[in-house]
Design a protein around this nucleic acid. Structure first.
Lengths: 132, 132, 132, 132
DNA sequence: GTGGTCTAGACCACT
DNA sequence: GTGGTCTAGACCACC
């Protein structure tokens, strides 16, 4: 669990944490059955409030990435995401960013090159060896 | 000026408005020299407060998309975006979305197809056949 | 009367006009007894509203730079500024600008060099031949 | 935080506040890492609306003087002003004042003496002996 | 508790 | 009638 939180970012901490954990799962650093640290542990490791960690864990639980057992903490669950249903949700999130990008006179080719980097990237600080 | 605002979105209204106007400029629906409606006019058209419109206009002014004259409202300005300097800013915005997308088991190819649609898209509801 | 008005500036037009006329007096382009154009004339020359010209003229009258005769237009008056009474007024106007300048790590020497240019300058578009 | 606001000035309150804070930073009364009062706190201290304070803070944020954390208020940031690029901006601001000054028959020497005072000045009412 | 956003209403400067 | 500024009060997200 090498998780980087940017305290200066305008992105809420709980959301950064959630994304970082999903990313670790995708990259294989966290596998089904692995235990996440307790909210207290992780909170103190990252120097953030345990309620913030808790909020991230609950979102991950709601989206099926982890299972929270009352006394045993959080366990990475089987990937069950059916996927692909709601691409429009992502399109809506991407559209404003793409508009800003196009306003910078960035070509589609340049964008694709940027996306190549992003797509392969693990989380900041990640060591990519095994995915894909 | 056919602008769609989603009052229920978590994206702030002023930001939606700003994005919509930039998009209209990109698509050619708004051209250099065109006048934007007054803040009062547009606010009442969209059913939002004039201060919210004002905030969007001021952001557009700060980023060089429009020029605001005290008594004549807002005018679309020459595009002067130098561009390309700070791609990392966009990468940071895209990364969490991409992570969510990958978590849905969407392939890079499928993503590119989605991006084809987004990239070419003018604004929602936009009919852009008449702009020369 | 070669007066440049920047319609894009946030400085009110009437104030730009007033400053430009004072500058012309200082540089000798306008001398005691010279007639200023009528408000209609100057307004149409500059492409601005005659009320705006009128406002500038009235300020100049109030500050003793010109005399307005009901039917003969505005005449440059004898310089009667006693001067030097209220330096604090200027200090207050200069202070915020100086603060911004210092925040840019500009040295006093660099500032003095800048001031050399400003001090000698006639108005934009002015042809300096005779003053000092 | 001893900040003087002139409610009767034609200079907007938020701009006075912004300038005062920059000045405090320059003079060393505010140092990197120091916390500014919350918008509510400072607003009530100064007898102005919190939104007015907020506007000043956001300008300071945009110009890199402070960092605003969602839950911890505003922190003085590292000075990162590159500086020196756009002296013309300042020249334009200084020119009309200089013209008024010259119209008062103030000599360059007298002006320089005035500037000596302004340049060295910390903030009005500031007692800066204790900052290291 | 913090700032972010939105609404609302007011007054002012400018043209 | 235009935007600029200020006030005020409300709700929300975050921690």
């Amino acid at each position: 669990m090498f998780i980087q939180i940017d305290m200066h970012s305008s992105v809420p901490i709980y959301k950064q944490l959630k994304t970082a954990i999903i990313s670790s799962i995708l990259s294989g650093k966290l596998k089904e059955g692995d235990r996440l640290p307790s909210v207290r542990q992780l909170g103190s490791d990252l120097g953030i409030n345990l309620h913030t960690v808790n909020k991230a864990y609950n979102l991950l639980k709601d989206e099926g990435y982890i299972i929270i057992h009352r006394n045993q903490g959080a366990i990475i669950s089987k990937p069950t995401k059916a996927g692909k249903e709601d691409l429009t949700e992502f399109a809506n999130a991407l559209l404003p960013i793409v508009i800003e990008i196009r306003a910078r006179n960035i070509t589609r080719t340049q964008f694709d090159e940027l996306m190549d980097v992003i797509w392969e990237q693990d989380m900041i600080g990640g060591d990519n060896d095994e995915h894909r």
